[in-house]
Design a protein around this nucleic acid. Structure first.
Length: 478
RNA sequence: GGCGACGUCGCCAAGUGGUAAGGCCGAGGUCUGCAAAACCUCUAUCAGCGGUUCAAAUCCGCUCGUCGCCUCCA
C-alpha cells in the first residue's frame, strides 16, 4: 500500500515512486511578495503543507523548496515593462526591496498562524540572477533561445517539440487573441521572455551579457529547483492557474537544457472562489488573511480548507465557514476531554477497533491526500472516544491509545492544532475549575441546587461550560 | 474562439462500475435535579435525456446550468 497521486501530466492517479527513495524533492511555487497573502494562498500552502507532512510521516526524507518571487514579474507580456513590486513600491513610496521584504515577512507570519511548516529551503529570485543568466545563456547556445535587436531574449517555443504536454494546448490553437499585444521583436507570438532589457525608469535591474535588464516570469523556478533539488524533481506543485503558461514554460526551458524529464509528478490545487466567483485582484472580492483572522481562528480556516479535496473548487462563504466552525469546535471539545483524561500517560497494547479506524485514515491520505475522508474518520474515532469517556468504568488505557492516534492524525499529519486545549490542561486554571466542580458536586449531593447552579452559571459567564457525564463532570473553555 | 473542471440530502462535502462517508441544520430518544454535553435513531438514488453493462452517481453521447484557464494571479 503506497501513496497515489493525481499527476497533471498524465491526468491520472499514479503510484508515487520517487526517483531516489526514500528521498523526495518537492518544489512549490511560492508567492510574489507585493501584497498581503489572501485566501487563495492559504488554501494552496495548506494543501502542500499537508502533502509534505504526510510524505514525511510515511517515511520519506523530503526536501521542500519554495521560492519567494521578489523580482516583479511583468504585468503582461507586452513592452510596457511595468512590474508589480515596482508598482507597489511607487504606491507605498518605498524601495522595491523594502516592499518585497515587508510582504515576505507578512507571508510567513500568516503561514505560521495557519500552522504551515516552513519549507526546508526558501529561496529568493533576486539571489539567483547569476544562475538565471547562466541558464539563459546555455539555452541560447543550444539554439532554443534568441537575442533580439532590443536586447530581449525569448524562448523559441516551436523548437521545443513537447510544448503543450502539460496543459494539453496545441500551438496552432493557442494563437494569441486580440487581448494580448504581442511584443514586437518576438519571432513568434507564443515565444516567452527569458530576459528583458530595462530602461532607466526601471527600478529592479541587473547587468547581464545583454546589457541591463531583468529576468522573465518563468525562469526563476527552473533555475532554483535545479540548484536545490536537481534536474528532475519528484514533485512540483502550485495552483491550477499556473498550469499554463507558467509550468508549461518551465518544462520547456528546463527540459530543453537538460534533456531530462523535469517533473515526475505535477500536482495542482484547484481554485478557491468567494460566493461562487473567482477571487481576483481586479474583481474586488479579495479576502486578505490578516483581515479574515480578525473574525475567525486561523485553525478553523485550515480545518475548513481540508474539509474539501484539494482538486475540487472550494467556494468560500460565511455560512459554510460558520458550519465548519461548529464542527471544529465539537472536535476540539471532544479532544479536549480526551486529552485531559489521558495526559501524561502512555498506552500499552493495541486496540483492534481503533487500529481499524486509524488505518482508514492513512488509506484516505494515501489515496491522493483525501483529507475530507480523513476528517470524517476522525469523527468516527471521536465517537468511539466519547462513548468510552461516558462510561463509568471507562478503559483509560484504550482512551490513551486513542489520544495517541488522534495526535498523529490531527497534529502530525493534518497539522490541525488545538493549542487552547494544551494551555487549558496545564495551568492553574484547571486546578481551580476542578476545585469548583468538586464543590458543586458536594452541593448537588446535598440537593442544594441553588448553590450548584450558581457555580455552573458563574463559570458559564466566564466562558467555562460544565458538562455532567455519568462518571464525572468535564468542562470546556471557549 | 481554443483548452479544462464541475453539477450528489435545506447547506458544506466524499464516493469514479457492485448498489450513496462525514460535518452543519432539523426531528425523536437515552442519560440527567434541571441545563449543557455526549451517545443512539431518522432524513437523498446522485441536473435532464439516451446508450454500454448482469450491475452506473461512477463509462459513452447529447441537452441544460455553473465555474476556471487561455493576461500577473495559489
Amino acid at each position: 500500500m503506497g501513496i497515489t497521486i493525481y499527476n497533471t501530466l498524465s491526468r491520472e492517479k499514479e503510484d508515487f515512486i520517487p526517483l531516489n527513495p526514500p528521498f523526495v524533492g518537492m518544489y512549490v511555487c511560492g508567492p510574489t511578495v507585493y501584497g498581503d497573502s489572501h485566501l487563495g494562498h492559504a488554501r494552496s500552502y495548506t494543501v502542500f503543507d499537508v502533502l509534505y507532512r504526510h510524505l514525511k510521516w510515511s517515511g520519506y526524507k523530503v526536501r521542500y523548496v519554495q521560492n519567494i518571487t521578489d523580482v516583479g514579474h511583468l504585468t503582461g507580456d507586452t513592452d510596457d515593462g511595468s512590474d508589480k513590486i515596482a508598482k507597489q513600491a511607487v504606491l507605498e513610496r518605498k524601495e522595491p526591496v523594502e516592499i518585497a521584504y515587508k510582504y515576505e515577512v507578512s507571508y510567513f507570519d500568516d503561514m505560521k498562524k495557519l500552522n504551515i511548516l516552513n519549507p526546508d529551503i526558501s529561496c529568493r529570485a533576486t539571489g539567483h540572477i547569476i544562475e538565471m543568466i547562466e541558464h539563459i545563456q546555455a539555452l541560447i547556445e543550444k539554439g532554443y533561445a534568441y537575442v533580439t535587436d532590443q536586447n530581449n531574449i525569448y524562448f523559441e517555443v516551436r523548437k521545443f517539440k513537447d510544448y503543450g504536454k502539460l496543459s494539453g494546448r496545441v500551438l496552432e490553437e493557442t494563437k494569441s487573441g486580440e487581448r494580448i499585444n504581442i511584443a514586437g521583436d518576438k519571432r513568434n507570438s507564443e515565444d516567452f521572455a527569458l530576459w528583458k532589457a530595462a530602461d532607466n525608469s526601471h527600478l529592479m535591474k541587473w547587468n547581464s551579457p545583454w546589457g541591463v535588464g531583468y529576468p522573465g516570469w518563468h525562469i526563476e523556478c527552473s533555475v532554483m529547483s535545479k540548484k536545490y533539488i536537481g534536474e528532475t524533481l519528484d514533485i512540483h506543485g502550485g495552483g491550477i492557474d499556473n498550469v499554463f503558461p507558467h509550468h508549461e514554460c518551465e518544462i520547456a526551458q528546463s527540459e530543453a537544457l537538460t534533456g531530462k524529464p523535469f517533473i515526475r509528478y505535477f500536482i495542482h490545487n484547484n481554485m478557491l472562489t468567494v460566493n461562487g466567483t473567482k477571487m481576483g485582484k481586479s474583481l474586488g472580492n479579495f479576502i486578505i488573511l490578516k483581515d479574515l483572522f480578525k473574525e475567525i481562528e486561523p485553525m478553523v480556516l485550515r480545518f475548513y480548507i481540508l474539509q474539501s479535496h484539494y482538486r475540487s473548487v472550494l467556494d468560500f462563504s460565511k455560512d459554510s465557514m460558520n458550519a465548519a466552525k461548529v464542527g471544529f469546535d465539537r472536535m476540539r471539545n471532544s479532544i479536549f476531554s480526551l486529552y485531559k483524561k489521558t495526559k501524561d500517560r502512555k498506552s500499552e497494547g493495541t486496540f483492534r477497533d481503533v487500529d481499524e479506524i486509524f488505518s482508514q485514515f492513512i488509506q484516505a491520505m494515501d489515496d491522493d491526500f483525501n483529507t475530507p475522508i480523513a476528517i470524517s474518520v476522525i469523527y468516527e474515532l471521536l465517537k468511539l472516544s466519547n462513548t468510552e469517556l461516558n462510561k463509568t468504568d471507562s478503559d483509560i488505557n484504550k482512551l490513551t491509545y486513542i489520544s495517541e492516534k488522534i495526535t498523529i492524525m490531527t497534529d502530525d499529519i493534518l497539522g490541525i492544532q488545538f493549542n487552547t486545549i494544551e494551555a487549558g490542561v496545564k495551568n492553574h486554571e484547571d486546578q481551580l475549575i476542578s476545585f469548583l466542580i468538586e464543590m458543586r458536586k458536594q452541593y448537588r449531593a446535598e440537593k442544594n441546587f441553588k448553590m450548584s447552579d450558581t457555580i455552573r452559571d458563574s463559570l458559564k459567564e466566564m466562558g467555562i461550560t460544565l458538562k455532567d457525564g455519568a462518571a464525572e463532570t468535564a468542562y470546556t473553555i471557549d
